Amino acid sequence: MSQPATILVIDDEPQIRKFLRISLVSQGYTVLEAATGAEGLSQAALNKPDVMVLDLGLPDMDGQHVLCEFREWSTAPVLVLSVRASEAQKVQALDSGANDYVTKPFGIQEFLARIRALLRQAPSGEARQAAVELGPLIIDLAFRRVLLDGVEVGLTRKEYAVLAQLASHPGRVITQQQLLKDIWGPSHVENSHYLRIVVGHLRQKLADDPTSPRFIATEAGVGYRLLS
């Protein structure tokens, strides 16, 4: 017999979590719960749920931010469950990587049907690693930490974003245009000097010599690759 699917519910309302837990357990699912975004990301990294159910109005961080962080290292389906019903909120969540969006109040039968649909669509391969290790360098994508020889490296938001993008596809070339589009936005795809400056700072902090790189290799005229 196959293992029951694991559903992670991230919602700060105890009554909603209890209602979903009872409903999902009755269908044979294993249920994990979190009341904050940080707790939810920790649960996701440790337990690798098959589906995440995510509220947007969390006490410690916006659910959109949780979604973006989760998508840096996992391809597991995400169902947003929120009172936010505007088209703009839905579009933002779907563009950030959500697979489905249900507004509160909701019908439990429709909710369960959407969970079943997401499980059918779930990728069959392994999700991206929550942490990437390259000898002395550890890139913890789940907790947004970078360690070199056991010491945490302080990175700016852009520096971390570039490194995380490369770490999500170790050994694969990521083009300059893709990095600029994903990190700076579509209007900056021609501003390659932004990227060169950030990569230069990254290399300094990682003690990575560009002429003999240990971690980040330049593919001339194309982009960058994290050596695996």
Rank of each mutant, 00 (worst) to 15 (best):
L134E: 04
H193L: 08
G107D: 14
L163G: 09
F70E: 02
Q27H: 12
N99W: 03
P210W: 09
V198I: 15
N191F: 05
A5F: 09
S23N: 13
Y160V: 12
H193C: 03
E69V: 14
L54V: 13
G223V: 07
R172S: 15
E159Y: 05
P105V: 03
P123Y: 03
G40D: 11
L179Q: 11
P186N: 10
Q27G: 07
V151T: 13
A217N: 11
T103E: 01
A207M: 08
R145I: 05
S96P: 01
I7P: 00
L67N: 07
G63V: 12
R144I: 06
L119S: 06
L8C: 00
V132L: 14
G28N: 07
P123L: 08
G107C: 05
L24M: 04
S2M: 07
F19S: 04
V146F: 05
V153I: 15
V189Q: 14
V189R: 08
S228T: 14
F143R: 15
L195E: 10
P14G: 02
H188Q: 14
V78H: 00
K18V: 03
R120D: 15
F70T: 03
Q177V: 13
K90L: 02
V198A: 14
W73Y: 15
S168Y: 05
Q43L: 11
Q3V: 12
V78P: 00
L118C: 02
V199T: 08
D182H: 09
P105D: 02
S74Y: 06
K48S: 08
A167R: 07
I7L: 05
L134D: 03
P105T: 02
D95G: 03
F143Q: 15
D100E: 12
M61N: 10
I7D: 00
M1Y: 03
V66E: 04
K181P: 01
R17E: 02
M61G: 09
I183M: 06
G63K: 08
I197R: 14
R196I: 04
L134N: 08
K181Q: 13
L148N: 08
Q129L: 12
V173E: 12
A167K: 08
K18D: 11
Q64L: 15
L67S: 09
A167H: 11
V51F: 05
L58V: 11
L119V: 12
D50Y: 04
G154F: 05
D149G: 13
N47C: 06
I174V: 15
Q92L: 11
G185S: 12
A142V: 06
A34E: 01
L41S: 01
K90H: 01
L118F: 02
G57S: 12
L148S: 11
K104I: 10
K18R: 14
A38K: 07
Y101R: 02
R203W: 05
D62Q: 12
L155W: 07
E39L: 05
A76V: 06
D55Q: 07
R225H: 06
P77C: 05
V91Q: 12
L94R: 01
G150N: 08
A85E: 10
R172K: 14
